[in-house]
């Protein structure tokens, strides 16, 4: 029985680790500036935790096999523990865990402590059951007022976010169902929700933030590879949660300007 445990525990350990090491399923390709740092911290955590995982599981398997009761077993070692070992082990794990945490926190600080740089592209993200809308403030750089009494989700677009046409700042606002972003420029997001909590999650851009009704959350990131990236809602929002998805199209600056100009022209 001891040997069977050793074999199974070791097999589970190696089997689980295989798919991590072979990266059969891994983080999607990172297409934002933060991806490098986030993935670095992930890899560091993964290597350190991997070592602990191996050490603990392999020794568990070994110990249960080695110290199984046999006719030849001698008396057990009568011991209530070893305080020195205990203290050393405590300090080691404390250093490991707290050190790991401090290393990750600088990345977090760069992502979330500071606001977006001046000159970032402003985009407002609005979540509602079960769609995402994206609003660009237009040439004046100001979002027009929105009003709950004007919201009409079935109409889509501007009506869905309740854009108030009487506000002069709203005249040039562009509302779309697909998010266009210029590559290598920081994006200044305002994330909102009109009904329940949603979460704006773009795995390839290493970005996630809940959209909370009653809050207007400012976040920023910088996409650095041209391509189409999928958005998946990451907070349970109702029966259509699984199909509340969208696309972020990261394009060149010229393509972005051309696209935005065309949308503005449509509005006139």
């Amino acid at each position: 029985m001891g040997f069977a445990l050793l074999v199974i525990i070791w097999l589970i350990t190696f089997g689980s680790a295989y798919f991590f090491i072979a990266k059969t399923w891994w983080l999607p390709v990172g297409a934002s500036a933060a991806a490098h740092w986030i993935d670095g911290q992930f890899t560091l955590t993964y290597v350190l935790m991997g070592i602990v995982f191996f050490a603990a599981q392999l020794s568990l398997g070994y110990i249960v096999w080695k110290y199984r009761e046999r006719p030849s077993s001698g008396p057990v070692e009568y011991s209530h523990g070893n305080t020195t070992l205990e203290v050393v082990w405590t300090i080691l794990t404390a250093v490991l865990f707290i050190g790991l945490n401090l290393m990750g926190s600088s990345v977090w600080a760069s992502q979330r402590f500071d606001p977006a740089q001046p000159g970032a592209v402003p985009v407002e993200v609005t979540g509602m059951q079960f769609a995402w809308y994206f609003r660009y403030p237009g040439l004046d750089g100001k979002y027009g007022a929105t009003n709950a009494t004007l919201m009409d989700p079935s109409a889509g677009g501007e009506a869905a976010v309740g854009l108030d046409p009487s506000d002069p700042a709203a005249k040039d606002d562009v509302v779309t169902g697909t998010m266009f972003l210029p590559v290598n420029r920081e994006v200044d997001l305002s994330i909102r929700s009109v009904d329940v909590i949603h979460s704006f999650f773009v795995p390839s851009l290493r970005f996630k933030q809940d959209a909370v009704p009653g809050l207007n959350i400012h976040m920023h990131f910088t996409p650095n590879q041209i391509g189409d990236y999928e958005i998946a809602c990451a907070e349970l929002c109702g029966l259509g949660h699984y199909k509340m998805h969208g696309i972020v199209k990261v394009v060149s600056q010229e393509d972005f300007d051309r696209w935005l100009a065309a949308r503005e022209a449509e509005k006139q």
Partner: peptide, 10 residues
């Protein structure tokens, strides 16, 4: 505070 969209303020 909560965000009031007509006035764009908290």
């Amino acid at each position: 505070p909560t965000f009031d969209s007509p006035s764009s303020s908290y």
